[in-house]
Each structure stands twice: as C-alpha cells, then as structure tokens.
Design a binder for these strands. Structure first.
Lengths: 122, 122
DNA sequence: CCGAATCCTTTCCGATACTG
DNA sequence: CAGTATCGGAAAGGATTCGG
C-alpha cells in the first residue's frame, strides 16, 4: 500500500467487496487442506447454512478461486478444489487464520472491557 | 488450520465475523502507513461513507486494534492509530492487500467469463 | 472537523420445502 | 447428496440533518 496513487487501495477495496464477507476466506482456508466434497465442507463449518455455502462457493468459482467437479453417480458427488489462483491465496489467508487463532482471546478481552466502559452510561 | 480439532476454524470464524466485512481490513491496511486523522482516512478511501467509517473505526477500537486520540482544539482533531495488536495484524493484512493488487485483473477476467457462460441461458 | 441520530432502501441470510 | 426456490425478518449501508 505504498503506492503514490491509490491503485493499491482501490484494488484491495474491489477484492474485499467480493471475498470480504463472513465465509469466503474461511472456505478458502478450509480448502487449503485439499479438495473437499460439499458435505465435508458443511461438516467442517457447522455454523454455515446450506444456502450460504452454496452461494459462497458459487462466488468463489466465479472469481476463479475454486473449481467445481461433478461426478454424476448415485448419489451425486461434487468436489471443490482450489484452482491455481486459489492456491496463490493460500499463504496470505493461512497467515491471517493463524493470526486469528493467536489473538482471539486478546480481542475478546478487549471487546468485553470496551462494552463495560460504554455500557455503564446507559 | 491443521488442527485435529476445529479450534482453528472456530477462531477464524469468530474473527471474520468481526473484521471480515468490507471495510475493516482496508482501514487497517491504510493505517499501516502510520497514524491518520479522520478526514485523511475519508480522503484515502473515497468510496466509504462517513457513517460507515465512524462505525468501522468504532468496531476496530472495540477490538483493541485501533486507538483513538482526541485533541480538543478548534476545530477538533481526532487521530487514529494502530495499537500493538493492530501492528501485529499489519503483516498478514498487507500480504493480502498485495495479493489483491497482483490478481485483481485475473479475478475480473474470470468473473466476466463466468457471467457470460451463465448469462446465455436466461 | 468530527461524529451522533434519524430515516429509509437495499441486501443479507436463515428456515423451510421441494427436486434430480 | 447436492443442490434450487421462496419467503420474511434482520442487518447493512447511503443520505441527510443536527451538534460540540
């Protein structure tokens, strides 16, 4: 982000408008382990609804980050996998995920303190 | 994310529920250059509304990522700055920003192709 | 200059029911 | 198993106005 112009800012903004939601980065981080079926993703991310999983995967496929492979068997089987572009996102996303794991407690503590400090004057 | 249990997944989810929005990561990346006043942030991120800038900064302050310093002059002056915790988020976020800059074109191309392939059957 | 408050529209998203 | 379709409440977010 040390551009003289604001190209970096606009590019980052544009990307965040797409994958800066509650699920996209998480799904990328889960698929970083390797290809997964639809139902496996559901199991690994219990808090997501079927609808949002479908929509998010569709968006990632549209961005070229994830590939979708249908095996027309009975029962049907659909595998999702990071594309080459998705693979290149692996490192930054996993770095972010590790930061999250390392700091979730600090964040939660800070939130509690902030809420207490501001809740008193109600 | 190579945990046997799903602690990593849950922690990442929790963090993304907070900073996984359209603006938080962007603001962190802008503040990575150094402290900024409110109006400077507005200038650097033209597409954000005053309201969302205020709300997002409040959220980041609550998380302990950003500190807010009021200088009671006339006109008033308010500076925002990354805390130590915010500084630790700098590296992962800048890595993501750089990825965004490097790949925004590829993503856009992929989106256009996807939309054309799916728009035909309307 | 910074931001709180209100209003109002748009979008998100979970629940549910239904298909191949 | 892996979706799609539809609905309704919730939340996001822009525009505007007012205040210290």
């Amino acid at each position: 982000m040390h551009d003289p112009d604001s190209f970096g800012c606009r590019a980052f903004t544009a990307v965040l408008q797409r994958i800066g939601d509650k699920w996209s980065l998480l799904i990328v981080s889960v698929l970083a382990d390797g290809p997964k079926r639809f139902s496996e993703l559901r199991r690994e991310i219990p808090s997501i609804s079927q609808r949002m999983l479908t929509l998010t995967l569709r968006g990632l496929e549209r961005d070229g980050l994830v590939s979708r492979t249908v095996t027309p068997s009975i029962p049907p089987r659909v595998d999702y996998e990071l594309t080459q572009l998705g693979q290149s996102l692996r490192k930054p996303v996993c770095a972010l995920a590790e930061w999250a794991m390392a700091n979730i407690d600090v964040i939660h503590t800070s939130q509690t303190r902030f809420d207490r400090a501001n809740g008193e004057k109600v």
